[in-house]
């Protein structure tokens, strides 16, 4: 098991904005924005858009599926981290609204949240101190 670090000091770097197109996955799309912009670690500064259907994780390992289209993303927070294996991993959490405006929340499951019309995201690069 990797050593757990409670405090990581660092500074903020560049700011990227991206528009991600329909049918791309929300979580992996954010990871690919980091690839496109050369970010290795980042925080979400702002995001909004819509999903075809939303898929959120539950505490007991199940999948909460909110059916669209469209399911609006009305709140989103999260980060992207680079791993020792050379991969990037986004962890995104948020609140979504179904086509009647009813809300649900939780962690977005990678690969299971296809974008419906558009997704706008602003990422701020995180530069850990050496």
């Amino acid at each position: 098991m990797a050593e757990m670090i409670a405090v990581e000091q660092g500074s903020m770097g560049r700011v990227a904005y991206a528009r991600i197109a329909p049918n791309e996955d929300l979580v992996q799309g954010v990871e690919k924005v980091c690839l496109a912009e050369g970010f290795r670690n980042a925080f979400v500064r702002g995001a909004l858009g819509s999903l075809v259907d939303a898929c959120l994780g539950t505490v007991d390992g199940k999948y909460l599926q909110i059916l669209g289209p469209a399911v609006e993303i009305v709140s989103l927070a999260g980060e992207v981290r680079s791993g020792e294996d050379g991969s990037l991993r986004a962890a995104l959490t948020g609140v979504v609204a179904d086509p009647e405006g009813n809300v649900s929340g939780g962690p977005f499951i990678a690969g299971l949240n296809p974008i419906c019309m558009t997704f706008e995201v602003t990422l701020e690069e995180w530069l850990p101190a050496k």
């Binding site: 996955d25 075809v52 259907d53 898929c55 539950t58 390992g61 199940k62 999948y63 909460l64 599926q65 909110i66 059916l67 669209g68 179904d98 086509p99 009647e100 009813n102 649900s104 690969g111 299971l112 949240n113 296809p114």
Partner: peptide, 12 residues
């Protein structure tokens, strides 16, 4: 409310 909880991975 259009939402369901499943144990199977939903197909996007």
């Amino acid at each position: 409310m259009k939402r369901v909880v499943t144990t199977a991975i939903p197909r996007p």
